[in-house]
Amino acid sequence: MRIGLPGAETLKGGSLKALVVTVLLSVFMFQLLRTVGLRAFSMASETYMSGTHSAAFVTCPNDTVAKDLARGIVERKLAACVNIIPAIKSVYEWQGKIEEDNEVLLMIKTRSSKVPALAEYVRSNHPYEVAEVISLPIDQGNPPYLKWIGEVVPE
Rank of each mutant, 00 (worst) to 15 (best):
M29V: 13
L19W: 04
R34S: 10
P6M: 02
P6Y: 00
V27A: 13
R34W: 11
V23F: 05
L5H: 03
G13S: 13
P6E: 00
P6W: 00
T35G: 13
G13L: 12
K12M: 08
S26V: 05
V27Q: 07
T22L: 14
L33H: 12
T10W: 12
A8P: 14
V21M: 12
V21N: 09
L25E: 01
L25I: 12
Q31I: 13
F30R: 06
V20I: 15
S15V: 08
L11A: 01
L19Y: 05
Q31L: 14
A18C: 10
G13I: 15
S26D: 02
R39D: 09
F28M: 10
G14L: 10
L24E: 03
G4N: 00
A8F: 13
Q31R: 12
V36S: 09
I3V: 13
K12N: 04
A8D: 14
S26P: 05
L5S: 03
M29R: 11
V20G: 06
Q31E: 12
L11F: 00
L38H: 11
S26W: 04
V27K: 08
V36A: 09
V36N: 09
S15E: 15
V27H: 05
E9Q: 06
V20K: 13
E9N: 07
V21P: 06
V20E: 02
S26A: 01
K17N: 02
V23W: 04
I3K: 05
T10V: 11
G14P: 08
K12T: 11
R34G: 13
V23T: 12
T22M: 10
L24H: 02
L19Q: 06
K17Q: 08
G37H: 12
G13D: 11
S15T: 12
T22A: 11
L38A: 06
Q31Y: 09
P6D: 00
G14D: 11
L33Y: 15
G13A: 13
T22D: 00
S15C: 10
L16P: 00
M29Y: 14
S15A: 12
P6R: 05
V21D: 08
A8C: 09
V27E: 05
A8I: 15
L25D: 02
G7Y: 03
R34M: 07
G4Y: 02
T35R: 14
I3D: 11
L32H: 11
K12Q: 08
P6A: 00
A18L: 14
A8Y: 13
K17V: 14
F30M: 08
A18T: 15
G13C: 07
T22N: 09
L33Q: 14
R34I: 03
P6F: 00
G7W: 07
S26T: 07
Q31C: 10
G13V: 15
L11P: 03
A8V: 15
S15M: 13
K12G: 07
G37A: 08
G7P: 05
L32N: 07
S26C: 04
F28K: 01
L33A: 09
L5G: 04
L38K: 13
L33I: 13
V20M: 10
E9T: 09
L38M: 11
S26R: 00
K12F: 06
F30N: 04
G37P: 00
T22E: 07
R39I: 10
L32E: 06
F30P: 02
L33E: 11
G37C: 08
